[in-house]
Design a protein around this nucleic acid. Sequence first.
RNA 1: GGCGGCAUAGCCAAGUGGAAAGGCGGCGGUCUGCAAAACCGCUAUACCCCGGUUCGAAUCCGGGUGCCGCCU
Length: 310
Amino acid sequence: MVYEKVKICVIICGPTASGKTFLAIEISKKIGGEIINADSRQIYKFMDIGTGKPTLEERKEVPHHLIDVITPDERFDAGKFIALADSCYDEIRKRGKFPILVGGTGLYIRAFERGLIPSPPIPQEIREEILRKKQEKGLKYLYEELKKIDPETADKISPQDFPRIERALSYYMAMGQRISEMRKKHGFKEKRYETFKIYIEPPRERLYKSIRKRIYDMLKRGWLDETEKLLKMEYDENCPGFTSVGYREMADVIRGKIKVESAIEMIYKKTKEYARRQIFWFKKEHSVKIDSPDPSKVLKKVEEFYEILS
RNA sequence: GGCGGCAUAGCCAAGUGGAAAGGCGGCGGUCUGCAAAACCGCUAUACCCCGGUUCGAAUCCGGGUGCCGCCU
């Protein structure tokens, strides 16, 4: 039959250490699902323990996609993510299975659901030029530039926010258009998928406890060795992958700069901050909110949601 | 019993006459192609209590209370 089926997708989101992986696997097993990873860190090869990837056993139980797609020195972004996620989705559907998008990266999930503004790859020269200007004339100068060409964007962001200043500036240089206009036009109005979004938010106290426990588990499972291997492969703090919480600290421990105990405390603090940011991202928009990864709470709804596909 | 020191937010802590730094912890938020990134914001009507000096005291003086050292 030739007709356009609606694209619909179940999504599981929530802060780190809330039990997304567990819930996703349990549901997948019941409904014949396959998991698409929406975590910006788990796409990196060789970074398994510290990014909390599902174990190999877990991955054997249920097929996982978009894990281990690039090396730690490569860059990745939301645009690449949705292109890959789309094709995973289609393949899974071809097999008659049910896709479940799981992850903690709010931007990727939003982009998957509602798209991004059109944006070609920014030429390397433009990036370099901006970086050069930053070094020569300072961040303030760049911000003033942005004010001139796109006051609306400048108004919305802090003069300290280099990544966004750079983005707006380079977009203008590459496209000849203000990014603010494109954003206005786009406005996240498009709906690429009809979704059923499950949001897990454990009470803070419990979440913080799981975070701490998880750090100890990671250490026990060999986070230090994993980091040491990365360093031997010549992947270090200059790699995009190393912006993942904890790897810098692990490297510092290996180099004898800090003690494990203080590394743990730093990681604990950063992870909590990260979890809070995730909560602010997800709390605004979801289909159901649950406070623990209990499959029985959502299984029936997931089955109902996917009924129209079968 | 004597001598000395300390007493500031949930915790640590600066300030030693002119309208309470900072850190930790906690909390709220932004986010359109580096997002586990980057960025923004809130968190002591007042400094142990009472009295005094002063235009003005967390800051000086007296007394009280508590804690910590040392001594007998």
